[in-house]
């Protein structure tokens, strides 16, 4: 096995195991902190695919923004010390059926998907290309997203300051 593959398996294990911890951990706060490893694993996978800008943006947005918001939400939960995750107990047959069906669906898609072989290209910088594409070919989605975010920002401020009235 090549060193490259060992590295990939290590990254994949980190991502999948920490994601499993997010889902199965008994304490809410442990789930939230396990997300840190999952997001880092994602960023590593992007580096592995030589998408450097995407990897760094992933860390800035998910670890620096979303994870901190999630943590603040969890820390401000009432009686967090004694809260355990309450998993709903649905009937075994229905959940088993649902699980098998979605697993079959995913397997079907995997078997049909045209997997691209690992590109043999070198580690080319992507930042400049991404910048140009966003401001030329994908300008409309970019502008729509920025308007959407502005709306979310104003809405959040409105909700947060509602008590003043």
């Amino acid at each position: 096995m090549e060193a490259n593959q060992i590295l990939f398996i290590a990254i994949a294990l980190l991502t999948v195991l920490s994601a499993a911890m997010v889902a199965f951990s008994n304490k809410l706060i442990h789930s939230a902190f396990a997300l840190l490893a999952t997001f880092t694993g994602f960023a590593m996978l992007y580096v592995y695919l030589s998408a450097d800008f995407l990897a760094v943006t992933q860390i800035v947005v998910y670890v620096g923004g979303i994870l901190i918001l999630i943590l603040f939400g969890v820390l401000m939960t009432h009686k967090i010390y004694s809260t355990t995750k309450k998993t709903a107990h649905n009937s075994l047959i229905v959940s088993l059926l649902g699980g098998i069906l979605s697993a079959g669906l995913i397997l079907f898609i995997i078997s049909k998907a045209p997997w691209a072989p690992l590109l043999a290209k070198g580690f080319n910088p992507t930042t400049a290309i991404i910048g140009k594409e966003i401001l030329t070919g994908y300008l409309l989605p970019f502008e729509i997203i920025s308007v959407l975010l502005l709306g979310a920002l104003i809405g959040a401020i409105y909700i947060a300051r509602a008590e003043d009235k």
């Binding site: 760094v56 860390i59 620096g64």
Partner: peptide, 25 residues
Amino acid sequence: DLNVGLLYILSVSSFAVIGILMGGW
């Protein structure tokens, strides 16, 4: 010599925030 060096340095500093929250909690 990363192509995104400056952005990288800003991004790793957000790990410190998580570590501090972790220690505090």
